[in-house]
Nucleic acid binder design. Structure first.
Lengths: 165, 165
DNA sequence: TGAAAGTGTCTCGACATCAAGATACTTGGA
DNA sequence: TCCAAGTATCTTGATGTCGAGACACTTTCA
């Protein structure tokens, strides 16, 4: 089946036949799919009264394992946002009682962000919902295709992730 | 090579062994790769003094072919933003002399947005630069792998793109 | 030990986005 | 012809993000 990127690439070949636009076949699709997924995630989380950014922070803490705490700096590298943004997020999550800020006993500049019981429950519920939703989207592909796709994407992402971030 | 998503999936399997987190292998990678690409695009466009959103609008017009004009509504469907956002973007691009607004001769509610000569030159230059940059990123994959990846992504995106947007 | 460089977090102002609603025009049918 | 519904764009107010810089503390090394 055709998609918007097929139309986009065809248009470029017509308008700029001098250029090699093959990279768009992959990277424009990544961008557009991500945009669609953001929109879909937003509605999936609405059932749990969570914004996508709240989910991102809560689940990063949940994944860390007991006692479910990380520094703001560790949260930055996982969520790819800036420090000002993270401060703001932590403030709001703390205001809703989903996380709490604790002083870092080993470094007096530092802070630890810890998931509360309520935060953990919300994160767990929202994750199940998200996975159900995503499974439906991926039903377009066979299990083997999903494996191939994951492996190809890993090859592209790995250089970014393993750079000195 | 390992990436952040491998670590993320391993963490979930440890913390929530009851869940099937396989969907994350694909969709989390799409999200993270898109985020990295946004950051890389931003620096690629800086050479041409363009923001990513400016590039998106200008190239949509450029792709339309002579006389390089589209309605705001057509621009909406291509860029996946809301109408308020598009009004704002057109205002700013018009202020910089890269596009101009013309009344639609066939529908007095409507407006046509037309690329200026300066806008066309900026769009063309930025596109070449972007493609060079993206080719470097995709050099991780063989030509055959790039083709496979494009095809798999198309299968996932097509249902979204062909839905009644 | 002391100073310089490094690190971790937060503050602040600018700005792009969204959602909802307002406005103006067009279309289809009674 | 006229009205109701539909469509295209813009306006407004709230909000989240970024970037740069401030501040406090830690580390390194002479």
């Amino acid at each position: 089946m055709e998609d918007e990127v097929d139309r986009l690439v065809a248009a470029w070949r017509r308008e700029r036949p001098d250029l090699d636009v093959e990279p768009l076949e992959v990277l424009s699709r990544v961008g557009r799919l991500s945009r669609h997924l953001d929109i879909a995630r937003r509605s999936a989380f609405a059932e749990h009264a969570l914004e996508p950014w709240e989910f991102d922070v809560l689940t990063a803490l949940r994944r860390a394992g007991a006692p479910y705490q990380l520094s703001p700096g560790q949260l930055l590298t996982q969520t790819l946002v800036t420090s000002g943004t993270m401060t703001n997020r932590i403030d709001r999550l703390a205001g809703k009682g989903l996380v709490q800020r604790l002083p870092d006993p080993d470094d007096r500049r530092g802070v630890l962000v810890r998931l509360t019981r309520a935060g953990q429950e919300r994160a767990d519920a929202a994750l199940s919902g998200l996975l159900d939703h995503e499974r439906a989207i991926l039903a377009e592909l066979s299990p083997a295709q999903r494996g191939d796709l994951a492996a190809l994407l890993r090859q592209l992402v790995a250089p970014f992730d393993n750079l000195a971030d």
